[in-house]
Design a protein around this nucleic acid. Structure first.
Length: 555
RNA sequence: GCGGGUGUAGCUCAAUUGGUAGAGCGUCAGCUUCCCAAGCUGAAUGUUGCGGGUUCGAGUCCCGUCACCCGCUCCA
């Protein structure tokens, strides 16, 4: 086992980790020979095996041998493997398209976001700027400048006027008197100022071009303060593609930003075909895509990444219990694969940072790892969220069948939309955390500068078989042992160069054990076992190598 | 998206006011070698991130671009 460092921010440099990943073939930049492409990463031979070990461990522990539930009975979790491209309506129903294909403005102070074309403003000035049509026209033509008095977010001019009239506080120092009537694109209202002078006010949707250049003069619709709004920006977090040879609006589709929606849309088929009943889980491993604004920190925020997701369907009233259960279970799982120290933590979210689907739920938490680049802070590995019945309900509504799609409890015949607890883990982030945790500088050690102390279950290479020298029958014995073991384990053999160099290379690859055939082997059928972490050797019978691995690595 | 920095062999780094792109390590091959990047001999490796410009001549100066790093921003 590795002995975890309490805080490796001072001892581990991300640059060194990235360099080792590159040099030894764990992780490379995608399309490197063309200069790379921002936010995309490839796994080399050692990295591909490492990531596979992580995903295999997850698959084993979730689907093949799921843990026991709160009542002591094994959970029922079945896998699916859904497509990356789905019907575009999936993403409308899930809420991914709605708010994110339009120019959006953020209020930096309140962190609220709204569609730029929903912003309406009231223009009014003390000096009676709008008391005649000519002045209004002059303003509309841009010949005179009038700053907006206040703004509101509204779906249409009527709603905007109603909101403005209804909020006497933000209207100050003006007071609403009466409607004046429709203008060409806007609406005029009569106001009075504090000296009871009549002031004409006009409400218009904010011109998008003016908003872009003059955003600093527009008060926040939430606080009334100027200077806290960001420029309108297109938030298109989803990758767009086109299905079929014709590229037009009708053929537009998206690469999924999360694997979860495949599970939700096939929930009914799973129920109909798999003899599962609530509570049960559906799990999936697969790629997802997000057009991140700033991909950074090595593979941590990649635009193409792989998720390991469970949607665990439950009765609504049991949400709190199951949320607790999955929180604790998933935290323990990450510990079990080698992230056992103080670099791993569980963090409950504050209510304010919750997503749209989780506002009213039993909770959301993250399993977080202290990466060298986040230290002393932490970065998310897995989020566990109570998503309520948001998604099933949304899809039932969007596809038009509505309550007919409610789940029927086969025992009680009750009909309801199950709630869901979603433990959603990042395979790439998990791999990166395992890499960072394993990375160990070895300043006092001969040969290697660094070694990788993977837990045996994660190690890309489980053992190496070396002939001590490349003659005297040793290579033949090594080759025989290698061929015998490689059916069960990832094993390497190497006869070239000095034994020290070969050990050192295995230390860097994180191989837990090396078996060496030496002069004694032919005589008494024993080999040496070298332990990666201590560099100490012991001698075992060559017939016991396989059982040694079974005991120390698992099968 | 904004500001700053960096970019020479797989890695670490050299290269005189602008004047022939090199070294160590690693890698590979052969020999040697009975336990920790050991030794000997040899070999391969670059349009100096990419593209323009200035110049008789650019790794070096200028512009653009790409990637990475740091700080903002962003991260339903």
């Amino acid at each position: 086992m590795t002995s975890p460092t309490p805080d490796h921010s001072s001892t581990k440099s991300m640059d060194d980790i990235v360099a080792l990943c590159r040099r030894r073939g764990f992780i490379w930049q995608s399309s490197e020979i063309y200069g790379g492409i921002n936010g995309f990463w490839d796994y080399g031979p050692l990295g591909a095996q490492l990531k596979k070990n992580l995903k295999d461990a997850w698959w084993q522990d979730i689907i093949k041998t799921p843990p026991a539930g709160p009542d002591g009975n094994d959970l029922d979790i079945v896998p699916v493997d859904c497509t990356i491209i789905m019907h575009p309506k999936v993403w409308e129903a899930s809420g991914h398209v709605g708010g994110f294909n339009d120019p959006m403005v953020d209020d930096k102070e309140t962190k609220q976001r709204f569609r730029a074309d929903h912003l309406h403003a009231l223009f009014a000035e003390n000096k009676g700027a709008f008391d005649n049509p000519q002045t209004v026209q002059a303003w509309r033509d841009g010949r005179i400048k009038v700053l907006p008095h206040l703004t509101v977010v509204a779906n249409g001019i009527g709603e905007a006027v109603a909101m403005i009239k209804g909020n006497s506080k933000s209207l100050k120092p003006f007071r609403y008197v009466e409607d004046f009537g429709d203008l060409e694109d806007g609406y005029a209202i009569k106001l009075v100022d504090k000296d009871n002078n009549t002031v004409m006010g006009v409400v218009y949707p904010v011109d998008q071009e003016i908003l872009k250049s003059d955003i600093a003069n527009y008060p926040s619709p939430f606080t009334g303060k100027r200077g806290t709004l960001t420029e309108p920006r297109m938030f298109n977090l989803m990758f767009v593609t086109y299905v079929g040879a014709l590229q037009d609006e009708d053929s537009k589709a998206y690469l999924r930003p999360e694997t979860a929606q495949g599970i939700f849309t096939q929930f009914w088929n799973v129920v109909d075909t798999s003899r599962v009943k609530v509570p049960f889980g559906i799990a999936q491993v697969g790629k997802a895509f997000r057009n991140e604004v700033t991909p950074r920190n090595f593979t941590f925020r990649s635009r193409e990444f792989e998720q390991m997701e469970i949607e665990f369907f439950i009765r609504p009233e049991t949400a709190a219990e199951w949320y607790q259960y999955w929180r604790d279970t998933r935290y323990a799982w990450w510990q079990s694969i080698g992230l056992a120290g103080a670099n791993l933590q569980l963090r409950e979210h504050d209510k304010e940072e919750l997503s749209h689907y989780a506002k009213e739920g039993a909770g959301v938490c993250d399993v977080e790892y202290r990466f060298p680049f986040t230290a002393p802070g932490f970065g998310e590995l897995e989020g566990i969220a109570h998503r309520s019945d948001f998604d099933l309900k949304a899809h039932a509504t969007a596809c038009g069948k509505g309550e007919k799609m409610m789940y029927r409890d086969p025992v009680t015949n009750e009909k309801f939309f199950p709630h869901v607890i979603e433990p959603s883990a990042g395979a790439d982030r998990g791999t990166l955390a395992v890499l960072c945790e394993a990375f160990t500088p070895t300043p006092g050690r001969a040969g290697t500068q660094y070694m990788m102390r993977f837990t045996p279950r994660m190690a890309p290479i489980k053992a190496a078989i070396f002939p001590l020298v490349n003659k005297d029958g040793m290579p033949e014995i090594a080759d025989k042992l290698y061929r015998q073991l490689r059916y069960k384990y990832v094993i390497e053999t190497d006869a070239k160069q000095s034994i020290g160099k070969r050990y050192a290379r295995m230390d860097e690859a994180g191989t837990p054990y090396c078996f060496t055939i030496d002069g004694e082997t032919a005589a008494n059928q024993t080999v040496t076992v070298r332990d990666r972490d201590t560099a100490e050797q012991s001698r075992i019978n060559i017939d016991q190598v396989e059982s040694f691995l079974a005991e120390h690595i698992g099968s």
